[in-house]
């Protein structure tokens, strides 16, 4: 087994271990924190496909995270009020079934990501960063000003949605669901980057000129990666909304985009386990440093600076050495 795979599995084991510790010690706070880490890791894994493997520095993934969250919130609250989500052009009923909500969140993220991708992928570098940011901010202000779903105040939906008749209000059950989704997402990523598509995406990042000369349009490859990336982050958004039983425009704001980016960079860009390491480290820093000072993000900034300056491969890079996805 390769070292990086081993590190990814170890990270997952540590996350699981933390939750088990919380479960046995009857500390729901720790379990919920672990669930949050798993969800953030899923969001980061989504971004990692675009940012890491595709070299597409999206500063607008909050759009997809938030869309996933709102999809969950809107469908769930409609079901509780016994109202349809919409009646035109097609009638969509509310639902509290998690798989249904997940699918809707993924599809919603896809529908939003396609036009955003088509526009922003015509640019590159700094312009790409700014355009993705602009699209996400547009959605943020739309959510703030649209009163139907709570506007600025956000939307609460009181009871967690269910899957397979499990009691989702139990933190341990909810953690296992999030952890399971994370494992599936990471497995999917591992397969994806090793596939033909993964090879084309790697070439699009390393040398788009060569990809074109070979007869493959980089735009098509990048758009596909961007949309898949958005769908995964959208799924994380749905889980996050469910975790909090609340969704607000904050999920769409650029702070969220920045946070998801921090998970990836802290943990390791284009590393399978990177987002897991990043999300865990981020939450760990938040929990420990928050007790020391209210301005814990200053310290986070210093850590981030050190990672960018001295450990370009992030935490996973530090442990596993140079990456080897397509050697």
């Amino acid at each position: 087994m390769r070292r990086e795979t081993l590190i990814t599995l170890t990270l997952l084991a540590l996350l699981l271990g933390a939750a088990v510790y919380g479960h046995r010690g009857n500390e729901p706070f720790i379990i919920t924190l672990a669930a949050k880490a798993a969800i953030f890791a899923i969001a980061g894994a989504g971004l990692n496909l675009a940012l890491g493997y595709g070299g597409l520095v999206s500063f607008g993934h909050a759009a997809f995270f938030g869309i996933g969250g709102y999809a969950a919130g809107i469908i769930a609250s409609a079901a509780r009020n016994y109202e349809p989500v919409m009646t035109w052009p097609i009638e969509i009923a509310g639902s509290t079934s998690m798989p249904v909500i997940w699918i809707v969140a993924i599809i919603a993220a896809m529908i939003i990501a396609i036009p955003i991708g088509i526009f922003s992928l015509r640019t590159g570098g700094v312009y790409f960063i700014m355009i993705t940011l602009a699209f996400a901010q547009m959605l943020y202000y739309f959510a703030v000003s649209w009163p139907a779903y709570g506007g600025e105040d956000g939307l609460s939906f009181y009871v967690r949605n269910s899957v397979f008749g499990l009691n989702m209000m139990d933190p341990w059950t909810y953690f296992t669901v999030c952890f399971g989704v994370l494992a599936v997402v990471l497995a999917l990523m591992a397969v994806l980057v090793r596939s033909r598509f993964g090879l084309a995406l790697e070439m699009a990042r390393q040398n788009a000129q060569r990809l074109t000369a070979s007869g493959i349009r980089p735009f098509n490859v990048r758009l596909t990666a961007f949309v898949i990336s958005a769908m995964i982050t959208g799924l994380a958004g749905a889980l996050y909304a469910d975790l909090n039983r609340f969704v607000s425009p904050a999920m769409l704001s650029w702070h969220t985009s920045g946070e998801i980016m921090v998970f990836v960079i802290l943990g390791g860009v284009a590393r399978l386990g990177g987002p897991v390491a990043g999300a865990c480290l981020y939450l760990l820093l938040e929990q420990t440093l928050d007790g020391v000072t209210d301005y814990w993000q200053v310290l986070l900034g210093i850590v981030l600076l050190l990672v960018v300056l001295f450990a370009r491969g992030g935490l996973v890079g530090l442990l596993a050495g140079r990456r080897a996805a397509h050697d």
Partner: peptide, 18 residues
Amino acid sequence: MLAVMAVSGQVFRFFKPV
């Protein structure tokens, strides 16, 4: 391998490892 793949026209395959 990438050049061979490009000629084959079968780029958008997501599961089978290269």
